[in-house]
Design a protein around this nucleic acid. Structure first.
Lengths: 161, 161
DNA sequence: GCAGTAGCCGAATAAAATTCGGCGGCTGTT
DNA sequence: AACAGCCGCCGAATTTTATTCGGCTACTGC
């Protein structure tokens, strides 16, 4: 288990703010959490060093830029060997279109989020997954019609003590 | 359909860089894309105004901070009426633990990503979804064991012309 | 009680962001 | 072809921010 980093109220505030607004200036952040700029900067750096926060990503509104399709693929392996799992996990790292991959319990082994230029390319990616050498026996695809709620950070209010 | 914003090579570069590193300084960004700082700033502002990029999110490493569980829930409605879909879509907006919700085609209607402090709370959220008034008939849950590949932006290399 | 440590503040300095005027190229018109 | 208008770029000037650093205070352990 990962060691938890102990956070006081100010650290929690910093993380909550940066989670939602990564481009805030250090000065504004310091004001919001009630610290001087220098102390605030020290805290942010420590939180980054300790792996609590970062990297910082800009959200691209893809449909504003180009055509694309997003699919969610449920992948099942034939054998549940450590070897096959590892093979699959490593393979998805090499596919840029697979933007997210989770190992899950339940009726399948992996759930992937895949973003492709078009359905033809999605089919190609599907073939690649089937031939990944990890003994994939089934891929069940759900095409995303609408993104109703986009990820905008974790509900830290509910999660932090 | 959303109008596409036309992007030249420099705009594409800016977006690609900001997508991966939202906290880069404007000066460094300008150098990387080969513009003066002022021109670069103009471009970034326009891209933001046009809804191409932003907001900027800090990635929080949750397991470094607290215990939590992540589940992927496949939700099916009894009736496929526009009313029930809308009711459900609006309801998930009110649940902070639902960090992502997509309407999908296939064997279910919605796929949700849900992050809770513990399984007890997940059960509560499940109950809430069943009682959302949208006639949910089934929720199939997959518990995330490992996040093999985290979202780190879209594969713009593959998507942009 | 005292040394050591950690974290804070605020001043000084370095760096970055932002504004703005002017320049050059492109377009469409006369 | 000449010209006016527009757009986007640059670089200088200015404002704002980031960063460093020394000193202060509070807490810890001896």
């Amino acid at each position: 288990m990962a060691e938890k980093r102990s956070l006081d109220r100010i650290d929690q505030n910093i993380i909550s703010i940066l989670q939602k607004n990564a481009r805030i200036s250090n000065k504004a952040l310091a004001e919001q959490v009630g610290l001087s700029a220098s102390s605030c900067l020290n805290r942010v750096r420590k939180l980054e060093e300790d792996g609590c926060i970062g990297p910082y990503l800009g959200h691209v509104t893809l449909e504003r830029l180009c055509r694309s399709i997003t699919c969610i693929a449920m992948v099942t392996l034939e054998h549940h060997t450590q070897q096959d799992f590892r093979t699959f996990e490593q393979f998805v790292q090499t596919l840029p279109e697979v933007v997210q991959c989770d190992t899950v319990s339940g009726s399948c082994d992996f759930i992937l989020r895949i973003v492709c230029a078009d359905m033809e390319r999605y089919h190609q990616v599907n073939e690649l997954l089937l031939n990944s050498g990890a003994n994939v026996v089934n891929i069940s695809t759900h095409v995303v019609m609408t993104e109703n709620k986009r990820f905008q950070g974790f509900p830290l209010n509910r999660l932090l003590p």
